[in-house]
Nucleic acid binder design. Structure first.
Length: 207
DNA sequence: GGTCGGATCATCT
DNA sequence: GATGATCCGACCG
């Protein structure tokens, strides 16, 4: 199996910065999972920052405080925060900042890079195989394609079976940012980042 | 192309 | 009892 997380994974220090900085920096990086001996890789093309207790759209907003669900957001930088969305889907975040300060970056879309046949199989539902474009074009889709679920909540993102590697830099001119998707509070804060030229963005982000 | 409703459940009021 | 950091299929044009 290719991929050696110990050598290639982003260090925790990468995540020990403001969530909006990490959200920008993660564009172009590669998420890798090795599940059941099956390797899948995807290039991050869309992210959202949830910047701290003062962010009313965050699961760890001041009015909510620390709960069982958001506990990982209070953990050290560089771990995963995985939660169930609408009772149906899983969503993956990278925890940022410093220990006990709740902030994270939601991964919203990936460009499929390797293990695409595996992704197609995992994303097939009721006999319908999605187009390659829709394999990872949304936060709930990419977790299904990469076999990411609640068992990985709190997992350090520098080791098996889920890690993130540095990738080719994305130039500032190719980065677009705007409002986050699907939220009601602070709906106008420009904390969503995407690779402007990518054809792999979530449906909600295509303009 | 766009819009709408259902699925489904942990979390919080 | 209401609310989501969503997705999918149906339906309309």
């Amino acid at each position: 199996m290719s991929g050696t997380p110990q050598r290639l994974a982003l260090p925790a220090a990468f995540f020990a910065r403001g969530a909006e900085v990490v959200a920008r920096g993660l564009l172009g990086c590669t998420i890798v999972t090795a599940s059941g001996g099956e390797l899948t890789r995807g290039r991050i093309v869309e992210t959202e920052a949830y910047i701290g207790p003062q962010d009313p759209a965050s699961h760890a907003a001041e009015r909510i405080g620390r709960t069982a669900r958001n506990a990982s957001m209070f953990g050290p930088p560089g771990i995963a925060y995985v939660y169930r969305s609408y009772g149906v889907h899983w969503c993956l975040n990278a925890v940022t900042g410093h220990h006990e300060f709740p902030a994270a970056v939601l991964i919203r879309a990936l460009e499929p890079v390797a293990g695409i046949d595996v992704m197609r199989r995992r994303r097939t539902w009721q006999g319908r195989v999605p187009s390659d474009r829709d394999l990872c074009s949304g936060p709930g889709r990419l977790t299904a394609a990469l076999a990411i679920n609640g068992a990985l909540d709190g997992h350090p993102l520098d080791r098996q079976p889920l890690w993130i590697e540095a990738g080719e830099e994305v130039a500032d001119a190719d980065v677009a940012y705007g409002p986050r998707i699907g939220i009601t509070r602070a709906a106008d804060w420009p904390l969503r980042f995407c690779v402007r030229s990518s054809r792999w963005l979530s449906r909600a982000a295509r303009w």
